[in-house]
Every structure is written in C-alpha cells, then in structure tokens.
Design a protein around this nucleic acid. Sequence first.
DNA 1: GTCTATAGTCAGATAGAC
DNA 2: GTCTATCTGACTATAGAC
Lengths: 188, 188
Amino acid sequence: MSAPLFAKEGYDGVSIRDVAAATRLTPAALYYHFSDKDDLYLSVVIHEFRGKSTVLSNIIKGPEPPWERLEKFIEGLVNLTASDQNFTRLMQWVKLDSDEVRRHKLTEHVFSDLFVSVHDLVAELNSGHDAYMLAISIFGLITFPFELMTTRKFMPGYRPEHDKPAVIAKHVIDLLRSSLKKADGKTG
Amino acid sequence: MSAPLFAKEGYDGVSIRDVAAATRLTPAALYYHFSDKDDLYLSVVIHEFRGKSTVLSNIIKGPEPPWERLEKFIEGLVNLTASDQNFTRLMQWVKLDSDEVRRHKLTEHVFSDLFVSVHDLVAELNSGHDAYMLAISIFGLITFPFELMTTRKFMPGYRPEHDKPAVIAKHVIDLLRSSLKKADGKTG
DNA sequence: GTCTATAGTCAGATAGAC
DNA sequence: GTCTATCTGACTATAGAC
C-alpha cells in the first residue's frame, strides 16, 4: 500500500504521516504495528520483493540448456521491471541507502538469492568470463535502461520503442550472445 | 566542499545546517549566496561534474579508430568512477530525484554531453546494434559494478580484485569486443 | 558578506482514552 | 487495535544588527 510512496520519494522523502494517510491509519496506529520508521520501511520493501525473485529463480532452474535459461531469465526480469516501476526504484534506493545496517539487511533479502541463481547459471555457460563479474554485468544491462527511464527520454536518438520490454530484452540478448553462447553443434 | 555530503545522503538527507557546518559558514550566509536549498544543491552537483565529462569527451573525439577510442573511453570512465566515489553516487541521486524540474536540469548538465559523444562513437562502429541502446548499455556495464560496490561485497564469488579498475575495464571490453569490433583486416 | 536570533512548519515518537 | 492530543527536536528560510 505504501510501497509506491517509498519507491517514489525514498526513505527520507516519506514521513510516517504520509504512510498513515496512504493506509488511512493514524501515525499512532502504525507505531502499534512497527517499532519505528526503519522497521516499517524494511517491512514494506522486503514484502515488495518477496515472490518476485523466487519466480525468476525458478526460470533459472529449469531443464533447458544454460543459454536458453539465460534468455528466459533476461526476458523475465525485463518484463517484471517494465511492469512494475516501483521494483526498479526500490532497488535503486537500496543501493544508495546511507545507513549501513539497513542496507545490509535489505541486500540480504532483496539481492542475494537472485544473484546466486544468476551467478551459478552463467558459470554453467563456461564462457571464459568471470561468473561474478558477468552476473553483475547482466543485471546492469537489464536494469540500467529502466533506471534511466525518466532521464533518457531527453537524449538524442530516443524513440518510443526504446521503452518496449521486447526491444530491451532483444538488445541485451543480442549483445551477449556472441560473447556467451557456445556454438550450437558443439559436443563434449 | 559539500559534494561528499550530498553524495552520501542525498538531497533530503542533508540539511542546510549540515552544509553550513561542512563549509564553516552559517545557514544565513549560505542563503546570501544561494536563493534556496534547490539552488545550492544544483550548484554543488553541476560544479562537481564540470570538467569531468569534457575530459572523457575529448578521449572520444581522438584520432584513433572507433573501437580503440571506445576502449580508452571505457578505461577513462572506469578510472574516474573508481577514483571518485562521489561521482557515481551523485549520478545515482540524479536518476532517483523525485522532483521533475530538478531532475531535468541535472540531466541536462550531467548526462547529455557525454551521452551524445558515446552515442556518436558507437554509431561509427557500425556494429548493427541500435546506437542509442548500445550507449546506454555501455554506461550500465561501466557504472553498475560501482553502484553495487557497497552491497556486492556480501555476494558469493566476490574477490577483492573485482574492485580493481583494470579488472572491471578489461571485463567490460572483453564482453563487448566480439559483438562490436569489426574484423581487423577488413577494408571498405 | 557574515552574524545572532527566531519565525513557522514538519518530523519521529509517545501517552492515555476508548 | 485505533484514536486524539501532544511532546521534543529538526527543518527551511528570513529579519535585522554589524
């Protein structure tokens, strides 16, 4: 209910009174359910990510060859990111969080599982690239166009199709294919 | 003087009093030089980026073949990003800024010139990829490892060398080479 | 140009009635 | 569990002395 608020304005930009208005409760009622603002914020953000990362992890653990699972994962994360703007912004706020304890807790719940899944998948590809770096690159390639969504519209060369999930996913896959995909007919 | 403050805590996380303490002025003195907090913030951030993007643009406009200039640009932006942590964080705050007018002004001064330079460079490569998407991908590949710096240390597979600029730059270049670089002996 | 002092508003958090 | 009322402190911004 209040996730869009935190997604838009971040921790410092949202007051307990704002959350109270959005949930049609009073500040005092919120303090009955949460010990303080940090507790409320953590609960909201972690709840927002629950389920989403497990859906993507399941894609990654499918029966297909690694490259095909990677393609499906890329399409899945692009679609998720495109369909829920709060998702990307909440991740951005996590990365920027200036409170170390809070950022550590969020990282654990928000990034870890999915990162491990992608890391293990790209390791299977045997591409020669460092799996850790490669996993980070893939997340960067997928999320960066969405992180820039509100600013890149002013850049030269922009066309509305650059916002379409299918176009973004295809671009990422095309960019990675020649570096990562083993030749089709190759056998051990 | 107060750029590190805004880099760490963002617009909402830094008060006029904080800036006053950092500059050893009083809030009232700051209001003599700046009309309001927005004016102060914009001045600080834009000043922080001046010069930096022109240095990189000059690399891009060198005499070498396009792919070599792209390699040098990647190394240059990686080194800049690695040497000045404020740089990355201020860019992240710009992307997340919830005030549309402020974000528009910052985008103009912070992103535009460099984006245009990279866009035109990758267009020269004739790689077959959309130049606009490709420019965004390159910025994503370079900056994402630094945006995740504080959180990815907790991820499995992490080694300290993953923070080294040379390693990050090499990874990005290696990842892009087979997709973007024309065969060496090719002539028109 | 920089100061002290302060106006006016909003923040996080709590006490106590129901 | 949720409310009204309120405490305490921090915030942006300004007035006016020097």
